[in-house]
């Protein structure tokens, strides 16, 4: 039962990274784009971003119902970066919608666009920082260490910053790849192709930097990684997919592109999950919070699982229908 819930949590996290990530990434891509791209991006994400966003809400709900201690601990010590994630979420969603529905193309349009781009950048940055803090293991629940040590230093460091950069590049990369088949003209397609290659390069670079930064901050991520066969396989999959995706970027085949990047993102998230499984939050004093020492009683897990099962039975066909209507019928 617990395993199944963890699996669903992982799946919703993967889907949020892939789909929600693509929506945030589109905002980052827009920084490097013009009016024409703005139209394509709006058309591509308007019908789906709210549904995509719900994968995050699902993950949060699973966390606070199934693993209340993880949820309450994270929200206590990572209050500041999480608050900034929220500010990003608020502005991205509202600015995007305001821009889409506002009838005027005047000054307000420019403000909305600015807010949309800025918040599309801030959210993945601080999401990455938050994840970095969960990995790094500077988190402490000992109030006596003082404000800075408890609420700031766990996330304000080189490693977490690089994690933020990595998430931001990853989201931009996913978006660029997804946008290639959305564009109607060749010139625009070529622009996304170029951006996809560049963001892929920056994702790989920052991915390598994540490991270096971890060593620099004194967290031996490389040895943890080498201990986990699943992580090694995942990394191999990620690496093998690089030339494959580059090929599909070149041929611009929508279905293959979407499938291969989906697989790659799954492998990245699986690799991370496996490195620290079953630990969710590495804690300074060594009393790590794991799935096993934080989960809710069985009665709750059972009800959660029922709700999730019924939910998935309803949501998955609806989701497929949504994507068929807006992404296949082009």
């Amino acid at each position: 039962m617990l395993a199944l819930i963890i699996l669903i949590l992982g799946t919703s996290f993967v889907l949020y990274t892939l789909l929600g990530g693509a929506d945030f990434g589109a905002g980052i891509i827009e920084i490097f784009a013009g009016k024409r791209e703005e139209k394509t991006i709006t058309r591509a994400i308007a019908p789906v971003w709210e549904a995509n966003h719900v994968w995050l809400i699902l993950a949060v709900v699973i966390l606070f119902t199934g693993f209340p201690l993880v949820y309450s601990s994270l929200s206590l010590v990572l209050h500041i970066p999480l608050m900034l994630v929220l500010i990003g979420i608020i502005f991205r969603g509202s600015a995007f919608t305001f821009r889409h529905y506002d009838v005027s193309y005047g000054r307000s349009h420019r403000y909305y666009t600015f807010l949309f781009k800025a918040s599309s950048f801030i959210t993945p940055m601080f999401l990455g920082i938050t994840l970095g803090a969960m990995i790094l293991g500077r988190i402490t629940f000992n109030q006596s260490v003082g404000f800075y040590e408890m609420f700031v230093s766990p996330w304000l460091n080189v490693f977490c910053f690089i994690m933020g950069v990595f998430s931001t590049s990853l989201f931009a990369y996913i978006a660029a790849v997804f946008l290639i088949p959305e564009a109607h003209e060749d010139k625009e397609k070529n622009k996304y192709t170029r951006l996809a290659r560049n963001t892929m390069a920056s994702t790989i670079t920052s991915g390598i930097l994540v490991f270096i930064a971890a060593q620099w901050e004194g967290h031996n991520l490389v040895s943890d990684f080498l201990k986990s066969p699943i992580s090694i396989i995942s990394l191999a999959v990620v690496a093998l997919l690089v030339p494959v995706i580059l090929h599909f970027i070149h041929t611009k085949k929508a279905v293959y592109l979407r499938a291969s990047i989906g697989l790659q993102v799954t492998a990245i998230v699986t690799g991370w999950f496996a490195i620290q499984y079953p630990v969710v939050i590495n804690v300074k004093d060594g009393h790590h919070l794991t799935f096993f020492n934080t989960h809710a009683p069985d009665a709750t897990l059972k009800q959660l699982l029922i709700a999730l099962m019924v939910g998935l039975v309803l949501v998955i066909p609806a989701f497929i229908f949504l994507f068929r209507v807006f992404k296949v019928k082009e």
Binding site: H53, V54, V61, F64, P68, Y71, T300
Partner: peptide
Amino acid sequence: GAIIGMPFSWEGTAFFVEAIALGV
């Protein structure tokens, strides 16, 4: 969390369906 998570998980489901159907 463990006590009232259940209505929230159902709410999550309902909201998911709502968001998808609204997009459509």
